[in-house]
Design a binder for these strands. Sequence first.
DNA 1: CTAAAAATGTAAAAAAATTACATAATTTAG
DNA 2: CTAAATTATGTAATTTTTTTACATTTTTAG
Lengths: 285, 285
Amino acid sequence: MNILEKINSQITTFSKSERKVAEVIIANPEQAIHSSIATLAKVADVSEPTVNRFCRRLDTKGFPDFKLHLAQGLANGTPYVNRHVDESDGPDEYCAKIFESTMAALDIAHRNLDIGQINRAVDILTQAKKISFFGLGASASVAQDALNKFFRFNVPVNCFEDIVMQRMSCINSTDGDVVVIFSHTGRTKPLVEIAQIARQNDATVIGLTAKDSPLGKECNMCISSDVPEDTDLYMPMASRIAQLVLVDILATGFTLRRGPKFRDNLKKVKDSLRPSRFEKKENLS
Amino acid sequence: MNILEKINSQITTFSKSERKVAEVIIANPEQAIHSSIATLAKVADVSEPTVNRFCRRLDTKGFPDFKLHLAQGLANGTPYVNRHVDESDGPDEYCAKIFESTMAALDIAHRNLDIGQINRAVDILTQAKKISFFGLGASASVAQDALNKFFRFNVPVNCFEDIVMQRMSCINSTDGDVVVIFSHTGRTKPLVEIAQIARQNDATVIGLTAKDSPLGKECNMCISSDVPEDTDLYMPMASRIAQLVLVDILATGFTLRRGPKFRDNLKKVKDSLRPSRFEKKENLS
DNA sequence: CTAAAAATGTAAAAAAATTACATAATTTAG
DNA sequence: CTAAATTATGTAATTTTTTTACATTTTTAG
């Protein structure tokens, strides 16, 4: 794990002085790796041994070793720390923060992902007679995206934004049908209800939602991204991105399960778009 | 440039002893970053100042600084490479690959992002009388997602998946209207046409698309993510994720521009959902 | 072959990091 | 609420590491 993330995740376990050190480092890791222990101690307003203890607590051999780890973390593209957008941020800053926190969220989602569940979900999907994707609000576009992928697989699929249509569709479902429901919180009442209806009609319900949520409990199986709630601007952000990546994963799993011949089919679907597009210019140089 | 490459490229200019140092480092850079100058000097069979001079010659401040650079170079050696999903991959592998390549794509998008363009786009959006979001295929769900964010801002917004509706909407547009068009390739003919129509009717057209594409050229301004085309499974994957993050960024920019009072409004929108949700259980432990 | 220049090493100085221990702050048990 | 115990933090000394200054050796040019 990136040492910066490690600092962030353990920051609550630190003592007051250690936290000061952590904050200084997080605020400017670039500077930290070019400072001596004395400088850093002064900036953080603590003693040098405190900085040293801080380093040891993070399972490094000492300050120089810590700097090495930090340097590697920084080099790895991005110090994706969950930094929150601030009122005073300029465009540079909020862009960086949004990219970084999105990547951090994906990293968390990856770590928490139960691969066994993915595999089982792929099983279920490949055997489905019909697949329905439902979501509301921000999750509605995730459902639509899922539709855009799975319709290519030559399986009957559908996707409704309208809760009434969703209900009717679920009432009509039968054994062998699969209903995939997207909801970050898992607490949206109408979706919990359609999960119940679908199950009562023998459909298999897969929830891309929080594990212990009301919706999660109604589903036959549940794939959870465990990405923390987006609180920044009262809008879903990283959570729906994580859901989309899960859609990609399910679609990929589906494709691989079907073998190489199936992939040729996908190519055909894609190639069918060509007439509606302008030709790509080849290098004429 | 990676410092290891630099050593390699300059090795001919080194003196005999310096070359010994270089060889020891190249042979085992991992070990080098965990050695003291004394150890390294002994292994290379040279004196300590020679090692120091070697470091300086490579434009570093000294031995510790050199190790920092080396550490970064090593970390950069295994960045998240765009690893492609392979026929024989098990669930562990394809999950990891998809997460990693998505993150790599976001990293690229971030690096290539023209922040000035973002800022100008935010300008335009905050001053819009009406905002329309259009996309087709996978980009349709991106457009829908954008709608889901921007409708909260109390600006007239719309979003159609239907190309005919898109056309009609553009024909009706006037000065002060903003049309945002999503297309990864920028070569989808109908979208290029609606961009033309919109501009002929004095709307401002923002393209989230490739810079030099036919669509890009028709737009008043163009925000490009420069994420490489997804070739894995003939389906759009990372590219649309990058677009969504750009949507987040524009929405965030919009919000920040409007100031703190505006954020209270957003909170209200979010809170309005509460009655439709099951209560979140508080810790009862 | 000799003188100058360059390269390398030795040893001392400086800087940095670490340790041992003392003091202060906080928590816990009574 | 107080006193003991624990934990956290800092001071100062020690050790390690790096750097500098300078001496010696090696190389090169005439």
